[in-house]
Design a protein around this nucleic acid. Structure first.
Lengths: 136, 136
DNA sequence: ACTACATTTAACGTGTTGGTTAAGTGACTG
DNA sequence: CAGTCACTTAACCAACACGTTAAATGTAGT
């Protein structure tokens, strides 16, 4: 992980399947560390650290009640991540559109695919540590 | 990165701000390695490896034309990532709803927040290497 | 063939990740 | 207040990520 911005931290957290499994679990119900560890093939300290990572990413919050430590999902940061990705929706949509067009064209004639018809920019967000900033 | 599944690879690729900047650049127009390196504060070999990572994640494809190597964005994997995240939309939506409700309630009376009203499961996808599978 | 250009591969250093086991902390229980 | 339960922290390790510079590769032009 090279970046320390919010988006990098969130995507990093999501990059681990164990952490995604934990989030899936927490989507159902809040849970203790022991409960979260049970279905997983790793030790409790390992889970504890995953929870720390998730908490640091803002994806969960935790409260102590007695000797239990409850974890609760906080999906707000996912929204930011989704919004970043959504900016590219037009590209994958138009890719599919192009594919449709291509198939139609092939059925009619026999031309090769085009692929240069692309709309204008997508605003940036998520520049490298010290970018020379040309991508805005 | 502990997982090697598609989702892990894609989220890992997105976790780096330099790679996100490259994708932002490629959203505008296909580009050569040299063009992509220009605005970045790192060497060309470093960019070359980022491109390899993005290609491995399926986020770009590359073609050789003469001595140039063009990179083109392939946003399809982003769709899968977005879909994974979208499953949690209800949670962050209802979080906001709960917040609204809380604020309204506070304005009217003075009760503490509730937070236990959560709907049923969200289907899994993204289980750890060898999970004992309980989260489905 | 020689040279120049674009890019990749190799070798290396360094920091981080994700797992382990063992020891520490804090709250309840007898 | 000793013991146990639910965790966290510490110490350690192997693997990997990300950057560098130097050398190798491949294509084009002269």
């Amino acid at each position: 992980m090279s970046g320390s911005d919010q988006l990098s931290v969130v995507f990093s957290a999501l990059a681990d399947p164990t952490r995604r499994a934990i989030l899936a679990e927490l989507a159902d119900r809040d849970a203790t560390v022991t409960e979260l560890t049970a279905p997983l093939p790793i030790s409790m300290p390992a889970v504890s650290r995953h929870l720390k990572t998730l908490e640091h990413a803002g994806l969960i919050s935790r409260t102590r009640s007695g000797k239990l430590r409850m974890s609760r999902i906080e999906a707000a940061p996912l929204r930011e991540a989704a919004e970043w990705i959504e900016r590219y929706r037009r590209i994958w949509d138009t890719s599919l559109t192009r594919l449709d067009a291509h198939l139609a064209a092939v059925q009619a004639a026999g031309r090769p695919t085009d692929r240069t018809v692309r709309g204008p920019a997508i605003p940036d967000s998520g520049s490298p540590g010290k970018a020379h900033d040309k991508e805005n």
